[in-house]
């Protein structure tokens, strides 16, 4: 299983702050497409993906126990 965290506008879109999915062995890009299919409207948002608290690349492969976060455009400061 992997854990996925949602924040800000993406959290409002999904209606949940986190969920778990069977997704080990697949890529970040595959996960992004899966979630875009599951949550209408997500594909229109520009979202980066973090894996284990570091920004990930589309081809990075997810492992069992990974903690993923969808990072919408940040606006700190």
């Amino acid at each position: 299983m992997i854990t996925i965290h949602y924040f800000a506008g993406i959290k409002e879109l999904t209606g949940t702050a986190q969920e778990t999915l069977q997704f080990a062995g697949q890529t970040v890009d595959q996960l992004r497409k899966e979630l875009a299919g599951k949550y209408p409207g997500m594909a229109e948002n520009s979202v980066q993906v973090a894996v284990n608290e570091e920004y990930a690349l589309p081809d990075d492969v997810l492992s069992e126990g990974d903690v993923v976060a969808l990072i919408p455009p940040v606006s700190g400061g």
């Binding site: 924040f7 800000a8 506008g9 409002e12 229109e44 948002n45 973090a50 920004y55 976060a69 990072i71 919408p72 455009p73 940040v74 606006s75 700190g76 400061g77």
Partner: peptide, 27 residues
């Protein structure tokens, strides 16, 4: 401060009299 606005996962929501918006999400 420039780097904070680029890479640090923090989000700001503005709340007004007639609505609210997550900044960075311009919808």
């Amino acid at each position: 401060i420039e780097r904070i606005k680029e890479i640090v996962p923090i989000w700001k929501k503005e709340i007004w009299n007639d609505g609210e918006e997550w900044i960075g999400d311009q919808k």
